[in-house]
Design a protein around this nucleic acid. Structure first.
Lengths: 219, 219
DNA sequence: CCAAATGCAAGAGCGGTGCTCTCGTTATGG
DNA sequence: CCATAACGAGAGCACCGCTCTTGCATTTGG
């Protein structure tokens, strides 16, 4: 029943987050549950702890959305898989803008992300990397110029996480695609696109993802 | 002397922003200036108004950094100009992370950006667009596939702001470069790159900008 | 030259916040 | 059966944004 209680607190907090915005008030959550604010501290040591729980859930939610989209587009081309992931992530973000801001926006002041968050945080980028890896294994990636320098070495070190014998440049391109996706969604949500792209924002996102696919070399 | 006072308040607020973080406290600013918190309201109608002033200054600062970098790289190739702008923006963001978060991070809850901010907000993207426009005028952009659909029409409508007879796809590519830059810098600052790109983050940014230049078609 | 008007700063106060501490109550397990 | 632990409530602390009133200074106008 303790787990039940923490789950209910998280649910109310998520609702508060969706309506009121980022400044989640622990007292307001407690009021909504008809209990004293001090009682919430039996379940979460601090407001930051509650935020951490919500952050992990948000990472998992967007990661699952990306994975489901990729699975649904498995029969399509690899570029289309990437675009599908992009649309899924964007649509999740549009549905839960404050959760998106929580994980991809400016970090909450004084908040230090604990270790628990880095696992769920990698689900989206791993999904993109998986598409790239599968495309590479299927020989569906055109020849690309290699890169050099220190960044190449770093990418080579990371490449092992994604699969054997992945060219470092591909890892860099996968990261670039993820950055492009995050940047595009954040720009749309945070108002950077106002007065610039107002009509076809879905088309805007698709354009970004097609560009990312081209940069990866997906054919 | 009133202008002098508002300037000093902004300076102290900027310092507080740099040290304490995003949750700028009007009372703390007033304490630092040795005056009552209510006195600050003689100069700024609300905390949001003070934030707006800081936001405009931040947009101007990063915009000026981008313009200076572009001017300094005028003799280099167009791709190098783009990369120079990227490095300048990144370095400004590294020096003023909280100001970056203020303008490109999650919007402050309940804060509505007034009209005054949209002018300064466009300086960086305009600088990127200017590079693309000049490169196009100089014939230094390779042939690129056109796009179609509703997003093309929207880009065509925006293209007029940048110059006559600019292909819509080029405008889209310029916006994509800006998105890539913002996404990369935000990812670095907001911790998205931790455990993934830790060594050569400057090389990471350069890789993104080179990719953006390639997508634009700069030769 | 004096009075009126204006600008400024201070203080008190309101409702809100995160968080801590203490104190009853309840339930559980030896 | 009773000790122990978990729990909820309440008071309280220091802080926040913001408003209102008051007093002081300066400046302006007659």
């Amino acid at each position: 029943m303790r787990a039940e209680m923490t789950e209910e607190i998280k649910a109310v907090a998520r609702r508060h987050l969706a309506t009121d915005g980022a400044n989640l008030s622990l007292r307001a959550v407690a009021r909504d549950m008809g209990m004293a604010s001090s009682a919430v501290y039996r379940y979460f040591a601090s407001r930051d702890d509650l935020l951490t729980a919500l952050i992990i859930e948000a990472y998992d939610a967007v990661g699952e959305a990306a994975e489901r989209a990729a699975a649904a587009a498995r029969d399509a081309g690899f570029a289309d898989q990437l675009v599908a992931v992009g649309h899924a992530v964007r649509e999740w973000a549009l549905a839960e803008p404050h959760q998106w801001a929580l994980i991809y926006g400016s970090p909450v002041p004084g908040y230090q992300a604990p270790q628990d968050t880095i696992g769920p945080a990698t689900r989206v980028i791993f999904q993109i990397a998986a598409i790239v890896r599968d495309a590479y294994a299927a020989g569906r990636i055109g020849p690309q110029p290699e890169i050099s320098g220190r960044y190449r070495e770093e990418l080579a070190a990371v490449a092992g996480q994604f699969g054997p014998d992945i060219p470092p440049r591909l890892v860099g391109a996968a990261i670039a695609a993820f950055i492009q996706l995050c940047g595009a969604v954040s720009a749309e949500l945070f108002g950077q696109l106002n007065k610039s792209v107002d009509e076809d924002r879905r088309g805007f996102l698709e354009f970004q993802m097609r560009g990312a696919a081209a940069f990866i070399g997906l054919i």
